[in-house]
Amino acid sequence: MLKRKTVNSIFILGLIVLVGLSFFLSFPWYIFLLVGFIWFLLTLFGSFFVRWNYHLVSLHSNKSTTKNEVAITFDDGPNSQYTPMALELLKKYDARATFFCIGKHIEKHPELFKQIIREGHTVGNHTFSHDNTFGFYGTSKVAHELSKSIDLVEKLVGLKMRLYRPAFGVTNPSIAEAVNKLGLISIGWNVRSLDTTPRNEKMVLKRITTRTNRGDIILLHDTSAKSIAVLERLLLFLKEKNLKSVTVDQLLELKAYV
């Protein structure tokens, strides 16, 4: 996978070579512009495609597992309307999941958050505010956002979260530095449902079921009726395929809390 430092080193070296050669050969000016544009595109796509591990290494699956397990993960909750529905379905099918919660939603629904943990699911950090401009925050502001959620959860249930799900799937040098400083583990996915897009229930379910295999991490959201409908059909599919949904820390064999 592409790494930011590697790409930057290659492009800096390339520019040095081009500048050196320009003393002996004639290059059109737009060659330098083209090199800069390619670097910009790689950095931009690396920021938005979490699976590239461009700025920050995230864990996306466990393909080495010998167990028939997958991990269903939910982002953006807890939601007072839909999270209880998700919990009811998970209980019905004896499944476990991981909820990457937004701090301000935990603050608003503390008892629902406690219920998630009480029923055997794992919780992780999805920032405190999930602000639309989160990708433009500096390192200290990112760290403050993450720490605020960590402190809130520790005060509420006595657990210090280690798992972080990048907001909007966006990473950059500031986010990477803050995550590393706080000693967090970034969790990505390799099966993205796209349940927050205009795709209908059937399309979302097909997208998941045609991609899901042992060791995969599935991304859903506990924020809509469509996602809940998809969840029930997904749990039936997993049962038919003899795949069990476990928490992401169990799938990846790591500790979710300090």
Rank of each mutant, 00 (worst) to 15 (best):
M161E: 12
L152F: 06
R162W: 00
T197H: 06
A178F: 01
T196G: 04
S147N: 15
D195V: 10
L146N: 10
K148S: 08
E154M: 09
R165L: 07
V153P: 14
S140P: 00
K141T: 13
K160T: 13
E177M: 07
L156K: 11
T171S: 15
P198H: 00
I187S: 02
S186T: 03
F168Y: 15
G169F: 03
D195E: 13
L182V: 06
L156I: 14
A178M: 08
V153G: 10
R192Y: 09
K181E: 06
P173Y: 05
V153M: 11
I187W: 01
I150H: 06
E154A: 13
W189G: 03
P173M: 10
S149G: 13
R199F: 11
D151V: 09
A176I: 04
R162F: 00
K181P: 06
N190C: 04
G169L: 12
R192E: 12
T196D: 08
N190M: 08
K155Q: 12
H144W: 14
V170G: 04
R165N: 04
F168D: 07
L184Q: 00
N190A: 10
K141Y: 13
P198E: 07
V153S: 09
I187D: 03
N172P: 02
V170F: 15
G158P: 11
G183M: 04
E154H: 11
L182Y: 01
G188C: 07
D195W: 05
D195I: 08
G188A: 05
D195M: 12
R192D: 09
G169E: 08
K155M: 06
Y164N: 13
K141A: 05
N190H: 13
F168Q: 15
N172H: 00
V191P: 07
V142M: 09
L182S: 00
I150E: 15
P198D: 07
R199L: 15
R162E: 06
L152Q: 04
R162H: 01
V170S: 10
A143W: 05
L146C: 08
L146E: 07
M161T: 15
A167F: 06
E145D: 09
S149Q: 11
N180C: 06
L159S: 11
